[in-house]
Each structure stands twice: as structure tokens, then as C-alpha cells.
């Protein structure tokens, strides 16, 4: 029996992906004492966290590969194929699967049994739990390896079925989408929509602020993934999100009396 590679003395993680997701994972890994090499996608920017190094491709020494691209399927496909070629067989590959199903990604690699989808979206690593969705042929070894990895980051895992947007990214991005529809229709001001949702339903953050925190491009990618997979009108992207900004129509709403809102804007949170 081979010892699973990820239990060797020092974990060496190779991360490829887009900013800020790749930074977030890289700094969490560095923080947990792992050796971290990162390759940011061309054109995505990205600041290397202290303690991590830049490297162009995965190598034989790496014990885990993490692919973190949601916004470009083409780039994701290339990153995964590269990792699949470079990493020794049996080395698990975790892949951001908020916008692309694991099933679809499985066709892009030669060894899908080591592919594990993760619900990776910017800022979600702040939570204490990470959802993972194993590929159909994934073995117990790959699943347990990914669970061990997240345990080392101080996170528990929840194993869900492969489905577009998984659980939290789907719910969250649909909330951002609905709030964006409402804002675009001018039913209320941006700040009022967020205030209403935090005070009226106890959400930890207003959906519009949350959308900005995650990044509108990421939200769009998740919604497009849902739309592609289900082919339903339900998942169409709100016009404001497609336009890529929540500014503009934001301050004018049919609900607020014009002069009053002018006067109030200064002293309202």
C-alpha cells in the first residue's frame, strides 16, 4: 500500500488561479505552515503573500494542487490540464467549482479520480466550514486527503453532491442577483436595500455590499454557470450586474422623497 502523499512531513501546495482567490488560499496555507507556490493567471493581477513563492508550474514534489479560477473556463481548463500532467498520480487536486461543475471539469483531466470540487469564492474562506464536492470517480483517499487539508487550515468540511454553484455560492449569488434586480428597477436606494436585509432578516451583510466583497465578476460567473447548467430563465443575470457596476441608478429611487433623500444622505449610515 502506498502512503497517501499528502501525509508526508511538510505539505507542499501548488496554487494556480485568479486574484483575490489565489491570495486568500495562499495566505491561509502559509499561515498553517505549508510550503506554498503560486501562479496567478495572466492578467488577473495578484499579490504574493509573504512566505509564498511564485512558480510557473506544479512539480513532482507537490503534495496538493489547488486550481482557483471561476471567471474563465478556458483558463481553468488549461490550469487543470497542466496540473494533471505535472502532479504525480494520486496527488489530489482541489478545484474551485462555484461556476463550473466538477463533472464538466472531470472531462478536462486524465485522472478525474483525484479531482475534488470546492465552493471557493472570494471571502468565503473566512468561515469555519468549506463545502467540497468530489468528482464521480473520486476515491475515499482523495476525499479524506482534502478533508485533512482543510482541517489543517482549521476548517471543517461538508461533502455535497456536485451541482452548479454548490450550496452557498448559489444561494449567495442569487441573493446578490435579486438585490441587483431590485436596485436596477429603482425600488429602493442601495444603502436602504442592504439595511433592510441586515435588519429585517438578520443577514450578516447586505447582499449588495456582499456582492462587492465577493466581486461582481465572480457573482456573474456563478450565475452564468447556473444558467448554463439548468438552462432556466430563473438564473438570468440582473442588468446591473451584467453592466458590471452597482453605481449610478443607486441613489435615485421611486420610494424616497427627492429633497428629503438629498438632505438625509449626509447623515445616514
Amino acid at each position: 500500500m502506498n502512503r497517501p502523499r499528502d501525509t508526508e512531513a511538510k505539505r507542499c501546495v501548488f496554487i494556480a488561479g485568479e486574484s483575490p482567490l489565489a491570495e486568500e488560499y495562499a495566505s491561509a496555507c502559509v499561515g498553517a505552515g505549508m510550503e506554498v507556490a503560486v501562479r496567478f493567471n495572466a492578467g488577473s493581477g495578484g499579490k504574493l503573500p509573504a512566505g509564498a513563492v511564485r512558480r510557473a508550474r506544479a512539480g513532482k514534489k507537490d503534495t496538493l494542487g489547488i486550481e482557483l479560477t471561476n471567471t474563465s473556463r478556458e483558463t481553468k481548463r488549461k490550469n487543470l490540464a497542466d496540473m494533471d500532467r505535472a502532479l504525480p498520480s494520486g496527488t489530489p487536486i482541489l478545484s474551485a467549482s462555484a461556476a463550473t461543475t466538477v463533472a464538466e471539469q472531470s472531462a478536462w483531466v486524465r485522472a478525474p479520480e483525484r479531482l475534488i470540487g470546492i465552493a471557493a469564492l472570494p471571502s468565503l474562506l473566512q468561515g469555519t466550514l468549506v463545502e467540497i464536492a468530489p468528482s464521480l470517480p473520486a476515491g475515499r483517499q482523495a476525499i479524506e486527503a482534502s478533508q485533512r487539508f482543510f482541517r489543517e487550515l482549521g476548517k471543517e468540511t461538508s461533502v455535497v453532491q456536485d451541482s452548479p454553484g454548490m450550496v452557498l455560492p448559489r444561494i449567495l449569488c442569487m441573493l446578490v442577483n435579486e438585490a441587483s434586480f431590485a436596485l436596477g428597477e429603482g425600488i429602493a436606494r442601495r444603502g436602504d436595500i442592504d439595511t433592510a436585509m441586515t435588519l429585517g432578516t438578520n443577514y450578516p451583510l447586505g447582499p449588495l455590499a456582499w456582492g462587492m466583497k465577493i466581486g461582481l465578476e465572480q457573482v456573474r460567473a456563478v450565475l452564468e454557470g447556473l444558467r448554463r447548467e439548468f438552462g432556466e430563465e430563473r438564473y438570468r443575470t440582473a442588468p446591473l450586474l451584467s453592466r458590471g457596476t452597482l453605481e449610478g441608478s443607486a441613489e435615485r429611487s421611486a420610494g424616497a422623497p427627492p429633497t428629503h433623500s438629498q438632505k438625509q444622505r449626509g447623515n445616514r449610515p
Partner: peptide, 11 residues
Amino acid sequence: VFCSDTPGFIV
């Protein structure tokens, strides 16, 4: 908060 008369209002 202000809102116009649309189904479900905001929340």
C-alpha cells in the same frame, strides 16, 4: 427605509 410599492417591498 424607503421603498416603492412593488411586490414584497424590499425584504
